[in-house]
Design a binder for these strands. Structure first.
Lengths: 251, 251
DNA sequence: TAGTGGTCTAGACCACAGA
DNA sequence: CTGTGGTCTAGACCACTAG
């Protein structure tokens, strides 16, 4: 669902700068052009220029401050929303071939944790999947997905081994607007161990996710368990910018 | 290092709205005042109002879009920079009593991984600490901190059981400007197991962090291992907003 | 002191959602 | 259709940094 038209307005400035930084045309530690120079180059006023620079700052790509030139930081790449939610998109971005082996797909009554997460009554029907995800044919992650029936019907009529459920849902008009994620570590249970080919009790990195529509209805609940060493999560925090990763107390 | 003066300009709008949302004066799912209303209320133009709203959007507190009113989301709290970097600050925010039991503090030559992370030559002197961190006297996290000597000297002349190293460094004029963090899961080694009181091999949530000055010099390298169940990391991602948590390939 | 980025003003046009 | 938020313009003043 990524539009690949040449961006206009402040997004043109944003992608141009992002590209130049990524390509190393502006080295780490070097100053980017001043706002005045960017205004001239893109024939625009300061508004759009500052909008683009603000985004780069929030992403941790540059550092700026009163009186100083803005400077390129050593940085962790920031991923767009789609990549953040879709294993398939993530693989593409990483240059590996995404794969999946669906273990189970079923319609059944919601268990308590699922009902809570999806804001359903206990026992209401949900669609649940258990899929092993592969990168270049190597098992990397085990995902347990749960959808309310209304959403899950689009999944039931879909071959889950054929590609991205996320893209399928978007194509079906399901509007995923925002998501919350929680990261912790768990010991592999028997099923995890068998499918990911590790010893029972081995440490796994778990990401639990809830996805919502614009009006706040939960439409997906997932429990993804990653093999450490094959995947990790990263973030950059800059003083004065937004910091979207929080440390919370236990469940 | 948090200034507590009454904020001015767009920050006044920001904190006012944040407070109202936090206090539940605007319930989840409800619309916040329109931009025009906020302009009138704060006697300002759209610029500052939009600056405040943009921040709230990036933080995942509200959702907005063309033609629609902006709406309060169910949300994960966003933590300021200090809280994100300081266990002591985090505990205060969470309403628990921070504690620490320093196991080791020493000056020694850098090991290879440390030298890499701090951009030092192999064997250059560093200051390293091993501290068990407690919340309400319960062990929660084991931290291994490493500083280049130049920074570490401020730590050596400090009683590490007396409080926050982060605050000590800020007070010594060490300017921590940005940080990168990486999250994965590891099995507890013998030392971890003994200090955190778990079985060897038990899963731990690991956060590795590098902190930098404004000009990009690394000034801290840390490896924090959290007991799962006592702490987890969370993030909210909103379509169109910045997403500062990235999934990366293995190390 | 000259130039920078941070903030603000007071307008404007547009795409879109909801009544 | 009206009002909303998204974007843009062309100015302005300020605090600050670097030369």
């Amino acid at each position: 669902m990524t539009t690949d038209h040449a961006p206009q307005g402040y997004e043109a400035i944003l992608t141009a700068l992002r590209r130049e930084i990524a390509a190393g045309q502006i080295a780490i530690g070097e100053a980017i052009p001043s706002e005045a120079e960017l205004c001239a180059r893109f024939r625009t006023s300061r508004g759009p220029v500052r909008q683009a620079l603000g985004r780069l700052r929030d992403e941790g790509l540059i550092s700026s401050g009163r009186g100083r030139r803005s400077v390129v930081l050593e940085t962790v790449p920031v991923q767009p929303f789609d990549v953040a939610l879709s294993f398939t998109q993530w693989c593409r971005e990483m240059g590996v071939r995404p794969g999946q082996r669906t273990q189970r797909m079923m319609r059944r009554p919601a268990q308590r944790a699922e009902a809570d997460a999806l804001e359903l009554a206990d026992g209401e029907p949900v669609v649940s999947l258990l899929r092993l995800r592969l990168a270049d044919d190597v098992p990397i992650m085990l995902e347990r997905l749960t959808y309310p029936l209304e959403v899950g019907q689009h999944v039931l009529t879909f071959d889950p081994d054929s590609g991205s459920i996320f893209e399928r849902l978007l194509g079906s008009g399901v509007d995923i607007h925002h998501a919350t994620r929680s990261l912790d570590a768990v010991a592999a249970d028997a099923e995890d161990a068998r499918l990911l080919d590790v010893a029972p009790g081995a440490p796994l990195l778990r990401m639990q996710r809830r996805a919502f529509t614009m009006d706040g209805r939960p439409i997906e609940w997932s429990d993804d368990r990653y093999l450490p060493g094959h995947a990790r999560f990263a973030s950059t925090t800059v003083r004065g910018a937004v910091n979207s990763l929080s440390l919370l107390r236990g469940l």
